[in-house]
Design a protein around this nucleic acid. Structure first.
Lengths: 346, 346
DNA sequence: CTGAAAGCGCTTACAG
DNA sequence: CTGAAAGCGCTTACAG
């Protein structure tokens, strides 16, 4: 920034008051007389003053930033969540810093840097694979700032989170396929270490059993949420002697990869196999065929995570930490959106 | 941040040197003896010190942040560009703030706030529709920080930019379709005020003429880059008496919307009409049919924009402003990726 | 190569 | 309701 920017002193001069009064008029208008308020406002306008955030933050002993850690920025699943987080955080006066943990993992210590309470007043973590880092930070008594998990979480901790009912989503998917007459249902898993993977696999396995269907290990396909892994699963499916007649994919992208790869081999969905996704990202309704999938309310997830975090930061500031806030888990309902990629077994 | 964080004074005490020396050892290791360097490093490790960025930035009269303004965070086209920007900017020691102009437009003044050099040491603008704001800022002599446009730009200014050869991309698309024997080629436009819209429409119109094809106004369909607008174009296409046999869409998302809407009406691509997109976003190769499209090197765009901006900031700092840097336009080549959504006119 | 000292621009108890 | 003054934590000419 150039040295010619107006400072609070310039406003004070123009308004004929002290800098302390200008500061108060701006930050606590109620602690200042009506007349002073008006004069300061006029002086601000005249000088074109805007507060220097570095100075304010230094003095207030805060960073003014909320850091959001995303597993993979290039994944469209996160974009809507990010914009709803930003939409809820910005009005509260914080900057939103978005960092890609996949990228940060390259640089040793980078993640710790973000986790440090030196960097952010609060954290929203969309990546549940930070258990080790968080444990280490805690052991070293490096105080973490208030944080909230969104979408993913860490098992066996009291860290607050916002997520959907992943098990129920999986059950809905399986129930839908069973209802269409499918008896052999496959499932493409997410990454093995991922909490979403186990939750959805558990729900799927339970419902398969509940429906009295055969549960075979080789009908659980490995994956990592990516389109490429969905395509790889399709190739394995093609090579099987006894194929599932329906597939529940743990992400929409894997469903697209699976469908597309079958299409390249001359097979069609849902004619040759029914497919259900998970997420309901924007393109799901425009894919060909339109994808039957489990809807995650991404805007709500982002907004709630932001609100929970802001509440935590306030509580911390007021030294009145609310235990229920600090370890609350908001579990949002999911719903199945039935479209064209599934149909009754013929 | 809690008040118990180690400060530079703690490091100085532990190392038995002054705070000035600690600061130097950290910021300018070469200006300090080898022994001092080692002792400071040991003291940093022992105390767990990390620099307080607000204090550093205040003292250095900088913000430490680069702001990226995106037209729409929820659009997957931008995600890869954003992550490559972040990948190039972060190592240089800047925070990357991402803001959604669609959201910011709601709050009056928000955009100006971001444009202020009080907020960021540099700007990367992915939104070309900021012409008015930039003109106003300049007129009011509110010094803008160094900035670079990426993807989009503003005509008739000397503001530097990174972009692809949009006209050539359009020509490649039309030439490909003409080469397949198509004589009636339609085009779905982007938003009317958008510079990309005119560049691509110009290239398309030129090449249609160059190929000796009929150019009809009603074969230029309005759109706004979204899937919904592609679907709307499809409905108009369906209602026409004389339909184009091939469509060039100014974005992949519009192509998906167009194809999907036709599919809902029982028509298929490329059997009933050939379709070319623009962007080559990740899902293009996995759409059904896989989309023929004009590839934009999104990672290169992001990286180059970041590098240009960093160079500008350095130059500004050194007061040695390089005119060619300040108004350079990097135009990257595009290439046509031929897949399954186009085929010879039967 | 190193240290003492000033100052970046703001906010906030404190006193009046 | 208002002002004088201290101080947030760092960096950097300046002097030695």
């Amino acid at each position: 920034m150039s040295r010619s920017l107006p400072r609070i002193r310039d406003v004070a001069l123009a308004a004929g008051v002290s800098t302390a009064t200008v500061s108060r008029a701006l930050s606590h208008p109620d602690r200042v007389s009506q007349e002073t308020r008006d004069r300061v406002r006029a002086a601000v306008e005249k000088t074109g003053y805007t507060v220097n955030l570095a100075a304010r933050n230094l003095r207030r002993r805060q960073t003014g930033s909320i850091v959001v850690l995303v597993p993979n920025l290039a994944n469209p699943f996160f974009s809507l969540i990010l914009s709803s987080i930003a939409g809820a955080i910005s009005p509260a006066g914080y900057n939103v810093l978005i960092a890609d943990t996949a990228q940060a993992r390259g640089n040793e210590g980078r993640i710790f840097d973000y986790l440090s309470n030196n960097r952010a007043d609060g954290l929203i973590l969309l990546d549940g694979c930070l258990a080790d880092e968080i444990r280490l930070s805690r052991e070293q008594a490096k105080a973490l700032p208030p944080l909230v998990f969104a979408c993913e979480w860490i098992d066996d901790t009291d860290l607050p989170s916002v997520r959907v009912d992943n098990e129920e989503g999986a059950r809905l998917a399986i129930r839908h396929l069973a209802g269409l007459g499918h008896r052999r249902i496959g499932h493409i898993l997410g990454p093995l270490e991922n909490v979403l993977t186990s939750a959805r696999a558990k729900g799927a396995a339970e419902e398969i059993t509940a429906q009295g269907l055969e549960r075979r290990d080789d009908w659980f396909f490995s994956g990592d949420f990516s389109m490429a892994s969905g395509a790889a699963a399709a190739r394995r499916w093609l090579s099987m002697k006894e194929r599932p007649t329906a597939m529940f994919c743990s992400s929409d992208e894997m469903a697209f990869g699976f469908i597309s790869e079958l299409h390249r081999h001359g097979l069609a969905v849902p004619d040759d196999v029914s497919v259900v996704g998970f997420d309901n990202i924007a393109i799901a309704e425009r894919f060909v065929p339109a994808l039957t999938t489990v809807h995650q309310p991404r805007d709500t997830i982002g907004r709630l995570a932001a609100e929970m975090l802001l509440a935590l930061i306030d509580k911390d500031g007021a030294a009145a930490k609310d235990a229920s806030l600090k370890s609350g888990h908001e579990v949002l309902p999911v719903e199945l959106v039935i479209r064209e990629s599934t149909r009754a077994l013929s």
